[in-house]
Amino acid sequence: MAGRGPRPKDPDRRARGNRDPVPQTVLRFERADPPDLPDDVDWHPRTQEWWAMWRRSAQADTFTETDWSFLMDTALMHHAMWSKGQWTLAAEVRLRVAKYGATPEDRARLRMVFADADEKDEKRGARPATGARERHGVLKALPSPAASGE
């Protein structure tokens, strides 16, 4: 006996194949060491702290040379905000650091998780397995109203 229902549609004729129409380009990863801020700028102390934070961040382990270059441009905007009061740059800085996973929301959108999350999940699942009887005790079935003649 064959399967039930109509024959499946030819995959080439489906409207949605859930496959990426553009193939991925696989690149060789070359980690770049975090650069120092250039000496030709008298950096605002807040920008120096901000840069040091990014250098220490977990995300920094995945940065390439182009990532650091983009972040350096962002540091110049950050410096202009704090030293010259150019707060109109704040929105651009926020958008730029979001690309690097600056906030928990950014990391969630980028599907970034910290390695300790795996450890926490393992600990959470390490509870002793209990069956339904241990959780609920002995359950008794009640007679249905139809069986009792009501």
Rank of each mutant, 00 (worst) to 15 (best):
M1G: 14
M1T: 10
R4C: 04
R7D: 08
R7W: 06
R7S: 12
P8C: 05
K9V: 13
P11W: 05
D12W: 02
D12G: 14
R13V: 00
A15Y: 06
A15W: 07
N18R: 06
R19E: 14
V22E: 06
Q24I: 01
Q24N: 08
V26N: 01
R28T: 02
R28I: 02
R28M: 02
E30G: 00
R31Q: 13
P34F: 09
P35F: 11
P35C: 09
D36S: 14
D36E: 15
L37W: 07
L37P: 03
P38Y: 00
P38S: 07
D40W: 11
D42H: 10
W43M: 03
H44P: 03
R46D: 15
T47Y: 02
Q48A: 13
E49D: 15
A52P: 01
M53I: 00
S57F: 00
S57Q: 03
Q59E: 15
D61E: 13
D61M: 05
D61Y: 09
T64P: 01
T66N: 06
W68R: 06
L71D: 04
L71N: 08
M72A: 10
D73K: 07
T74C: 15
A75S: 15
H78K: 11
H79C: 05
A80Y: 03
W82M: 07
S83T: 06
K84Y: 09
K84A: 13
G85Y: 08
Q86Y: 12
W87T: 14
T88D: 13
T88F: 14
V93R: 09
V93Y: 03
L95Y: 11
V97C: 09
A98P: 06
Y100R: 05
P104D: 10
P104M: 08
E105G: 11
E105I: 09
D106F: 02
A108L: 14
M112R: 11
M112E: 04
E119I: 10
D121A: 15
D121H: 04
G125Y: 02
G125M: 12
G125V: 01
T130C: 10
R133E: 14
R135L: 15
R135Y: 06
R135W: 08
R135S: 12
H136D: 12
G137L: 08
V138M: 07
V138Y: 03
K140H: 12
L142E: 14
S144M: 14
P145E: 10
P145S: 10
A146D: 13
A147C: 01
G149A: 13
E150C: 02
